[in-house]
Each structure stands twice: as C-alpha cells, then as structure tokens.
Write a protein that binds this DNA or RNA. Sequence first.
DNA 1: AAAACATGCAAAG
DNA 2: TTTGCCTGTTTTC
Length: 327
Amino acid sequence: MPEGHSVHRIARQFTKHFVGRICEASSPQGRFVEGAAVLSGREMLRCFAVGKQMFAEFGDDPTAPGADASVWLRVHLGIYGAWDFAGDFTTKLGQTGEYGRGARIEDADAEDSLSSIGAPRRARLRMAEQEKETELDQGWPPEPVGAVRLRLLTEDVVADLRGPTACEVLDAAGVNTVLDRLGPDPLVDELEVGERRFIERASKRRVPIGQLLMDQSVVAGIGNIYRAEILFRARLNPYTPGNEVPLDVLHGIWNDWVKLLGVGVEVGRMMTIDGLTGDDYEAALQDVRHRHWVYGRAGEPCRRCGTPISLAEMQNRKLYWCPSCQA
DNA sequence: AAAACATGCAAAG
DNA sequence: TTTGCCTGTTTTC
C-alpha cells in the first residue's frame, strides 16, 4: 500500500528506536527463519529508504567466530505489507519538526526535545500507508498478531513485519545491485543530480509518461496515486510519450515530486491538493476521497473544470485523469 | 456474510 | 501472463 513517503517515515522510526541497539530477530510465521537467525544478536547500525524500499545495516555478530562483515536487511512492503511497532514511544512521528532533505537523522533529537512533555508511554503503532496508534494492554513483549514474517526486538521496542513482497538479507554488494536499479529519490540524491538522472531517463523513451512515472528505475518512490496526481498538476496527458514531453515540463514534474514527497513525509499522508485550509484540510487528512484531484474519482466532476474524470488501465493499474485539463 | 478491491512487486509458469 | 503475498476496507449479496 505505501508509496515512497511512508517508507521514509518507517526508516525514520527505525533510526529513532532501533539504531544503536542490539536486535533479537525471529520469524514467528516461519518463512524467514534463516534470515532472522543471521540478523539476531547484531546491532542495527543505520536504516534508510530509497523509493519504496527500506534498507537496514546490522553490525558484526560478536558471538559468531570469524564474522567480520555487516549484513543488510532489505524490505519492500508491496501492496499490503506493514510494520507494527510497539513499545515506549514519546510521540507519533510527523507531528513536529522538519522532514526536509538530509534531515532524517539529525532531526530525531530535536523532535524529542519538542515533544518530551509527558513520560514515554507504551503503545502500538501500525505503519503502512496510513498509520494508526492504539493502546498496548499486554505484557512484554506482546504476542505477534497474524503472520509475522520478521520480528525485531530490542529491550523496549518491537517491530513486526507482515505481508511484505520482499524481505531478504543481503551483503553490501547485493544492496548496491538493488540500488543501481533504482532511479533518483529526492530524499536520497542531491536535487540537481536527481533531476538530471530523471530527465535523462524519462526524456529519451517513447513510453507514455504515465508509465515512466511508475517505473522505479526512472524515478523511485512514485506509486499509482502520486502518478495520477502529479500528471494532473502538470496538466499533462498520461499517454504523452516521454520523448515528447517538453523538458521544462519534466523539470516541473521533478520539482513537484520533491515537494509532494516532502509534504507526504511530514504529514504522513499523500496530500496532493495545495492550499486547503480549515475543515477542507481536516477532511483531506481524514479521508482519501477528499485529498486528491483525480485519483479514485472516475466519473466524478473534475475539481477544476467539472469534466467527468476518466479511468483506464495502464500496465494493469488504474489510471485516472481529467480528459479536459490534461488534453 | 461473502466478495471484491487496494497506494506493488517478485516469482512461477 | 498468472499467481502469491495474506491485511484492511469497501461493496455486494
């Protein structure tokens, strides 16, 4: 379910609560027993997201004779994967602080100082596209619920992974192989470098721009909602071949993605309509049907011109656009 | 109550 | 090209 913004938030959560801690790893479901055994007993050294994928590096296992290299965990949540955190939290993520480029790790402390009113309380936090916090009224550690592929446990925080499309242990070379296949991510790459790579990859192909934006090797992190919304905001027809999109429009698309991703990571939702205030903003926060221009609105009147929103299949995914605004 | 559907991807056939 | 992932929400019977 998650697009890029939520994976960055999850990586932040790991950075805040797991990095620097020894992790006990297990696979209650039984489908990742070997991988969990490799990770268990190691310290998480760092965690970051690139596009929709999350990478966490674990240090040397001091108890394993001859071990001298770190190992990496790679996770892709797919369409309904989720991380369930439980333990002592001071706050939900995303309510304070700037989540701009390069601020992922440094901001963690600032956030703590801003929100340290009140003692940490034990809670449960589900992180998928949407986040939901609930009370934790069990003993410690809590029983895994459902099919938990991987459980990472520290002294006071636990993270349960369910339903991922990818979950594997890699060495550094394996991580690089994956990273090489991924296009630029505004929260990872220098903005100018990322833009150059995006335009290089998008402007040379005859493939429809609607398809290129979903291609994770062209730009990483955009999914079906951001795709539809970015194209509407650019007033660009999704079927326009990449090599026929004016360069300044591609430039605008990249900048818009930089902006939307920043908002998404900060707010924790894909807010794609600018300038909402008051009740309209609250409604948008609350309900996906109120926060997009065209996504999920087939047949409903365009919010800008009233024309019914079109729906078609592109690469087995639903594509929404306004046939008038995006002629 | 049951079925359909979803903000992806990888592996199998 | 089809299936698996295996959950949560919405729609249909």
